[in-house]
Amino acid sequence: MTRKPLGVLTAIVLLAVAVLIGWRVLRPAEVVEAAKDPYPVAQILPAGVTGKTTLAPLIVDGRLRVYAGERSIKADAPVGARLMITPRWSYRRWPAKLSGLVAIGATVVSRWDDGLLVALDGRTGKVLWKANGPAAAAFTGRTGSDAVYAPPGLFTSDSSVLTLDRKQLTAWSVSDGTQRWSTPLPAGCSAGFTTVGGSFACGEGAWDIATGKPLRSWPVGPSTPVGCEVASSACPGLRDAAGQEWDVTTAEPTTGGLHLTTDGGAVTASGTAVWRWPSRATILGVRGEHVILLAGVDLVVLDARTGAQLSRFPLYVSDERVEPWKPYRWQLTGTWLALERLRPGAGTDPSEPNHFYTIDPVIIAAL
């Protein structure tokens, strides 16, 4: 007569244990694993390939490589490490999914699909602040290159992080996460970019990042950004609707600056410098006094003032197979390049066979 009550009790206990385990697994959670080692110094290395990584790194403060996962962020160092190594710090959230991340100085700001903005101290991995922002697109891809090089609706300026959602542009203070201003954008503003001079351009208009107010004097749009850093931010130039190139490194756009074109199988400079580099190439960007090109699978660094070639080397590690590949996304700093390589026939689906050049598709090089 006692077997049935005992069986019922056992079933109740097992159910309670299952509920407890399920709650622990599925409940919202945040896990911070802070750095234990001192903040690394910036490396200064001779020009050349230093390594390759499985995930696409955001190079932060010239000292860290920060990686995006579907539900986590982690960092390793030094930037010139040959492969990915044990993380210095990591940050995980559940069940939210990461949308993208950006960095201003040593502060890493992440945006999640539930709308939360989380700022991490890149030196330690500890949380600096949180803010409730608009919902965002969830993580896509395998390497995280979309999240770190082209985060959807996420931009930076000197002291603000900007979010764009459903034509609403909002500026957040990078120091404490407070909302500085929010303004609606007109139809046609599904994307945009920030300029070195402190503006946000989108569609046919532009806005002052300091105040959020529309700028009345601006080249006729829609504008095409030129030479931007990651996250379509800190763009030094733009082309207006007529194709005229403008320098936007100051608050007032001018027609000065260095203008580069790739017509006729050569790279030609005009404006503040006049020269011609007689080979076909893709312009990766201009950083300081250097013009960085991709010629086939070779990285080429030119003197921006004269066009003289300063260095040239193939973007392969020493023990890697040497076959053709094509670039997808990249980050260019003053001293580093991180570039994701795809197979020549790769389409738009990263899950397709033979999409990436190798299992470690992101090549890293010192400039």
Results as ranks from 00 to 15, higher is better:
Pro5Thr: 00
Pro5Val: 01
Gly7Phe: 13
Val8Lys: 04
Val8Asn: 07
Ile12Asp: 10
Ile12Gly: 05
Val13Glu: 00
Val13Tyr: 00
Val17Arg: 01
Val19Tyr: 11
Trp23Cys: 00
Pro28Asn: 03
Glu30Arg: 11
Glu30Tyr: 01
Val31Trp: 09
Val32Ala: 06
Ala34Pro: 05
Asp37Leu: 15
Gln43Arg: 10
Gln43Ser: 14
Leu45Arg: 13
Pro46Glu: 06
Gly48Leu: 02
Gly51Pro: 02
Thr54Pro: 00
Leu55Asp: 15
Ala56Asp: 12
Ile59Phe: 08
Val60Ala: 11
Asp61Gly: 13
Leu64Trp: 09
Gly69Val: 06
Arg71Tyr: 10
Ile73Tyr: 02
Asp76His: 06
Asp76Cys: 07
Pro78Gln: 09
Val79Leu: 10
Val79Phe: 02
Met84Gln: 15
Ile85Met: 06
Lys97Pro: 01
Lys97Tyr: 06
Lys97Asp: 11
Ala106Met: 12
Arg111Asn: 10
Arg111Trp: 15
Trp112Lys: 07
Asp113Gly: 10
Asp114Arg: 07
Leu117Pro: 10
Val118Asn: 08
Gly122Glu: 05
Lys126Phe: 04
Leu128Thr: 09
Trp129Pro: 12
Trp129Lys: 01
Ala131Trp: 05
Pro134Glu: 11
Ala135His: 06
Ala135Ser: 15
Thr140Val: 14
Thr140Ala: 13
Asp146Cys: 01
Val148Ser: 12
Tyr149Asp: 13
Pro152Phe: 03
Gly153Ile: 04
Gly153Arg: 07
Leu154Pro: 06
Phe155Arg: 05
Phe155Lys: 07
Thr156Met: 11
Asp158Thr: 13
Ser159Lys: 13
Lys167Asn: 15
Ala171Gly: 11
Trp172Ala: 07
Gly177His: 08
Gln179Ala: 13
Ser182Asn: 11
Thr183Ser: 12
Thr183Asp: 03
Pro184Arg: 09
Pro184Leu: 09
Pro186Leu: 05
Pro186His: 09
Cys189His: 04
Ala191Asp: 15
Thr194Met: 09
Gly197Cys: 04
Gly197Asn: 04
Gly198Gln: 03
Ala201Tyr: 01
Ala206Pro: 00
Asp208Met: 00
Ala210Thr: 09
Gly212Arg: 04
Leu215Tyr: 00
Leu215Arg: 15
Ser217His: 03
Trp218Met: 10
Pro225Cys: 04
Gly227Thr: 02
Ala231Thr: 02
Ala231Cys: 08
Ala231Asp: 03
Ala231Gly: 02
Cys235Arg: 01
Cys235Glu: 06
Pro236Asn: 08
Ala241Asp: 05
Gly243Thr: 10
Val248Phe: 01
Thr254Ile: 02
Gly256Gln: 05
Leu260Ala: 10
Thr261Asn: 14
Thr261Lys: 08
Asp263Ala: 15
Gly264Gln: 11
Ala266Trp: 02
Ala269Asp: 03
Arg280Asn: 13
Thr282Leu: 10
Val286Phe: 00
His290Leu: 05
His290Trp: 03
Ile292Tyr: 05
Leu294Pro: 09
Ala295Ile: 01
Val297Ser: 11
Asp298Thr: 04
Ala304Met: 09
Gln309Glu: 15
Leu310Pro: 06
Arg312Phe: 08
Leu315Ile: 04
Leu315Thr: 00
Leu315Phe: 03
Lys326Asp: 12
Tyr328Cys: 05
Gln331Leu: 13
Glu340Tyr: 03
Arg341Thr: 11
Pro344Ile: 10
Pro344Phe: 07
Gly345Ser: 14
Asp349Met: 07
Pro350Leu: 00
Ser351Ile: 08
Ser351Asn: 15
Ser351Asp: 15
Pro353Lys: 10
Pro353Ser: 14
Asn354Glu: 12
Ile359Gly: 13
Ala366Asn: 12
